[in-house]
Design a protein around this nucleic acid. Structure first.
Lengths: 232, 232
DNA sequence: CGTAAGGTTGATAAGACTCAATCCTTGTGG
DNA sequence: CCACAAGGATTGAGTCTTATCAACCTTACG
């Protein structure tokens, strides 16, 4: 619940993260300094926005991790997406009256908040920025599609295995990889219970597929993990 | 597999469906007649595009239904979305090299195919059209989020109940509502098996919650169905 | 230290899948 | 117009997976 503001010409976050650096960046320098973008510092476990609240801004995650969560009327929570540094979230701000999910930081995080009103002040560059946001959105849709397949068509071990593979992707194969999520969060992400996740980890550690130390894991047998992710 | 082409200035599909009729429509009339948009007629169960094929077009469904399907390496299929008339699909065309899912018609359908190249010829109207596409995309993302909650956090009966509620929404409460999907398709949409779906239907028919005739259903007790969708 | 929160483990039960047999529907050809 | 074949749907029996409940362990931290 702790967020420190720092108003500034922080529109750079958006511009830079969207990869429109080149000429636009220069223009930005002059024209956009007065734009109402906030650079926010959140402490661990803070809420960025809540379901049902009026949606009037898009966000770029500068550092850390953010989880997007939807909750059933009965209180069951599902983690819709885990946002990583450099990614855009809160697309709802662009079309909806209210957010249809909640966003909370996992560990400390820096977030750049861009009011949608700011986008309209972009003038001739608005189209370019919006196009990039569209691209990001389409990619999120693709990822969501992939996750629908995971949740709809795979068993617990397959889900956990492909989650780990995805999480560790782009990391050196023989490194200790920080696992930011708690067992509960992994369970909520995969549509499972804490216990099943725990048991799977225990089993795989027993079989030497992976090791765990503190809040980090190390995959010892990538081959078997890949097999687990896709087959029986 | 049967599709009859009819090249024409069918760009109207996009323009109209995106709701940019007003002044833009007039301009369209003159400027866009030469745009390479195809109006396609598909017979039941035809493929619009397949996973892995080069993606170079966006589609608007003019009439009928289209299912978007992803498949596991083991052959398990998940329906990630059911496209209804007036909706846009194939967003992949705008960003990806290849489609990451397949699209097939359910029953006969009319589809308007807009090559992405065509969008670039839109000149000053391109921004407007792209903005509308972005809006559509964001809405799809929201729907996908909702479905992630369904698949991740709900039991079979809750999933089927909320699917039916969603399917029948906007329909007169006391009408026979055509159910376009087979049991298999419902199962693939909800991440269940044919048998469980069949059993749930049987049970609900027995309890007088709904009736079924031919390929249509009629909900007799909306209240109970709503309860089933959200609670135990 | 002592406490609280998170994690593990075991026993049990419920939910959903699998396999298999049977029952419609629907469409086709004689 | 009827008979029959084929695909879809239903139902039942048994099994596997995952959730639930409960106890216990571990770690971090005041």
């Amino acid at each position: 619940m702790n967020a420190q503001k720092s108003h500034m010409g922080e529109f750079h976050c958006l511009i830079r993260q969207l990869g429109i650096l080149t000429e636009l960046d220069a223009v930005t320098e002059e024209n956009l300094h007065n734009i109402e973008a906030e650079h926010l510092n959140f402490s661990a476990g803070s809420s960025v926005y809540e379901t049902g609240l009026p949606a009037a801004a898009v966000y770029v995650l500068v550092s850390g991790y953010v989880k997007l969560v939807k909750t059933t009327l009965l209180g069951k929570s599902q983690i819709i997406r885990i946002v990583k540094a450099g990614e855009v979230f809160g697309f709802d701000g662009l079309v909806a009256e209210h957010y249809n999910h909640s966003a909370a930081t996992m560990g400390d995080a820096q977030v750049c908040r861009i009011p949608v009103a700011a986008l309209e002040d972009l003038g001739e560059h608005r189209a370019e920025v919006e196009r990039q946001i569209m691209v990001r959105c389409i990619k999120e849709l693709q990822r969501a599609d992939g996750r629908l397949l995971e949740l709809g068509a795979k068993r617990s071990d397959e889900r956990l295995a492909s989650f780990l593979l995805d999480w560790c992707q782009l990391m050196p194969a023989d490194a200790w990889i920080p696992l930011v999520l708690s067992r509960l969060e992994i369970a909520q992400f995969l549509g499972l219970t804490i216990e099943t996740v725990s048991r799977l980890f225990a089993s795989w550690k027993r079989e030497g597929i992976l090791k765990e130390k503190k809040q980090a894991i190390r995959v010892m047998d990538w081959q078997r993990l890949k097999l687990l992710a896709e087959s029986h």
